[in-house]
C-alpha cells in the first residue's frame, strides 16, 4: 500500500513566489500539507505551502524542447537591447 506522491512548493516570505522544494508521500492533501510542514519547513523556511498531486502535473518534454520553444527564437525585437538609442537621448 503506497500513498500518492505530492509535489511541495514553499513561499519563503511575502512578496516571493512559491518555489518547488521536493516531494513526499501522503494519503491525502490534508496530511500532505502537515507532512510538508514537518519535512520542508523545520527552520521557518516558509510562510505558505502548496501541495500538488504529482500525477496532475503536466510537463513539457525536453526532447521536443527545440520545436516547443522555437517560436520565440527569431524574435529578438521583443528585447529592448534590439533597438538603437541615439547618443545623447536620455530616459529611454
Amino acid at each position: 500500500m503506497t500513498s500518492p506522491l505530492w509535489e511541495v512548493f514553499v513561499r519563503s516570505r511575502r512578496g516571493l513566489a512559491h518555489t518547488h522544494v521536493g516531494s513526499l508521500r501522503a494519503p491525502d492533501a490534508h496530511m500532505a500539507l502537515r507532512n510538508a510542514r514537518d519535512v520542508y519547513t523545520r527552520r521557518q523556511e516558509g510562510t505558505s505551502i502548496w501541495v500538488v498531486p504529482a500525477a496532475v502535473v503536466v510537463a513539457s518534454s525536453p526532447d521536443e524542447k527545440d520545436e516547443f520553444f522555437d517560436p520565440a527564437g527569431d524574435k529578438p525585437y521583443r528585447h529592448p537591447t534590439f533597438y538603437e538609442v541615439p547618443e545623447g537621448v536620455e530616459h529611454l
Binding site: 521536493g22 513526499l24 514537518d38
Partner: peptide, 22 residues
C-alpha cells in the same frame, strides 16, 4: 529529526529517477 528529514529529501530525489519509495 533532521536525519529523518534528510532521508525523506533523498527518497524524494530518488523517486524523480523512477525509483519507488516502498
Amino acid at each position: 529529526q533532521d536525519e529523518a528529514g534528510h532521508g525523506l529529501y533523498l527518497y524524494s530525489a530518488a523517486e524523480t529517477l523512477g525509483a519507488d519509495r516502498a
